[in-house]
Structures are given as structure tokens and as C-alpha cells.
Amino acid sequence: MGNKKYKGIEKKQARWGFIFVLPAMLFFSLFNFYPILNAFYTSFFDKRALSRRAPKFIGLGNYERLFRLSTAGNPLSFYNSLKATFIFTLGTFIPLLVMSLLLAVLVSYLKNGRVKKFLQISYYAPAVLSSVVAATIWMIIFDPRGLGNQWVNTLFNTPGVDHRWLVDPTMERLSTMVIYFWKYIGYFVILFITGLASIPPTLYEASLIDGANKNQTFWRITLPLLKPTVVLVSVMSMLQCLKTFSTQYMIYTNGAPRAAINVITFNIYVTGIQEQYLSRASAMSVVLFVLMMLLTLLQFRATKSENVDY
């Protein structure tokens, strides 16, 4: 009898639970599931943005075209986009992960509350700036007559040298990485600070009594207990980097050459929006989706993430 009553309450609670999550499920399916399924479906057709004709079914034609070996040498090919995406992701997400962890630890160790708050706000401020404002700031810096050349030339005493921030392919890649790093570091610092705050202070007290120094505390207590946050941040930052678009778009629209920064999302934009090949762009987005899934699974496997018990 008691068991029956218990089940009834559980059912009732679950029903209300569903009612509460239903709007989110609808929203998610409308704006996430549908586009994913639609992109997957569209990738098997030859659909042009303005065409009224029923799209022709071409099977794996779009995928075959993306991976056609004869296009590998073309600097605007999908192969080059894969390369540009990997270079950007590796060059950005590893420094993001390491630096955000170090900065979070630094902020957490600070005793002065005001300095702590100031640093938190400073790190996070770029994340809330609009892309237009960020673009304006960085274009002022990267203009050949801008602050970038002035600072570097003053620092290294190299007057009049143009460091070709948006001209040389390597510098162009580096510029996109710097902008991205600047914009998102604060977000990940906040995540790490939250993770650090969840570590019970009694562990630190115990380590202090046992005579551990700060270095030992960090490597033996902080880092192992921060593992779930490290996994979360590494997965999130990697996915963010794989999806990067606005930084490359901003630099390109300000005159920089495309090949070095033609990441997959940017290629999707050019192919689907500018060139109107919706199906080809859909195939690219499916490849990116699969790539993101595989890399995320790989990361989970590699880190063997599980809950940490304190």
C-alpha cells in the first residue's frame, strides 16, 4: 500500500517535471534537432538557395566533391579548411585551457577581495563585448599604422617594421588566435574559479597540517580534484574553437587573404550564403558535426571522466 502511494507521488512529480522541461525540449528540437536533421537530409541533394526546382538527389555526391583528391592542392578547398581548422583549434584551445587554469588559480589564491573582483571582471569583459566592438578594437590594433606595430616596434626597438598582422599567412593565423584567446579566456577562467570553489577547504587545511607546500597542494590536491572541470573546459573550448567563425569573418572583411583562415565554418558560410550551394554547405556542416562528436568522444575516453568524491 505504502509502495503504491510512493509510486503515485513519484509519477506525479515526474509528470510535472516533464511539463517544466517540455518548453526547453520544444525549443531544443526546433532550433537544434530540426536543423541537424535537415542539414543531414539536404546534404544528399543538390539544393541551391534561390532555385525553385525540386533539389536533385545526388547521394554522396557532395561528400565525394569535398574529399576529391584532385582539389587537395586548391588553397580554398575543403582539405585546406580542415587544415586551417585543426591549426586554429590546436593553437587556441591548448593555450586557452592552460592559461585559464593558471589565471583561475592565481585569482583564487588572492587574498584581497577587491583585486580579485577587478581581475575577474577584467578577464570576463571581452566575452560580453559585441563582435562589432571587438572587431573595431582589433582592426585599430592590426592596421599597419595601428597600435600592434607601434607596441611591438617600441618593445623590440624596431622602428618602421610592419609585422604584417593580416598579410602574412602565419601572422594572420596568429592574429585570429590572439583575438579568440582574448575574447574567451575570461569565460573559462570563471568556469575554473567555480570548479576551484567546489573543492572542500578542509582538504587544504589537512594538507597544510601535513606540511605540503603550495606547489604540492596544486599538483596533488587542486589538479586531481579539478579533473571534471578540466574535462568540461577542454571539451567546451575545443568545440568552441572548432566552431570559430566571427573572428575569421571579421579579419577577412577587413582585407586579409582567405586561405590561411578558411576554417570549416567560414567555408560553410561562403559556400552556402555567398555561393548559394546549400547542400554542399550542409555536407560540410555534417562533416564538422561528426568531427566534433568524434573528438569529444576521444577526449572523454582519454580523460576517463568520472565524478570525483571528496
Binding site: 599597419p144 599604422r145 606595430n149 617594421v161 610592419d162
Partner: peptide, 8 residues
């Protein structure tokens, strides 16, 4: 008018 490589 140039300042080194930079076009002023």
C-alpha cells in the same frame, strides 16, 4: 610617405 615599411 613611409615610416619604414609602414605607409603613413
Amino acid at each position: 610617405i613611409r615610416d619604414g615599411d609602414i605607409l603613413v
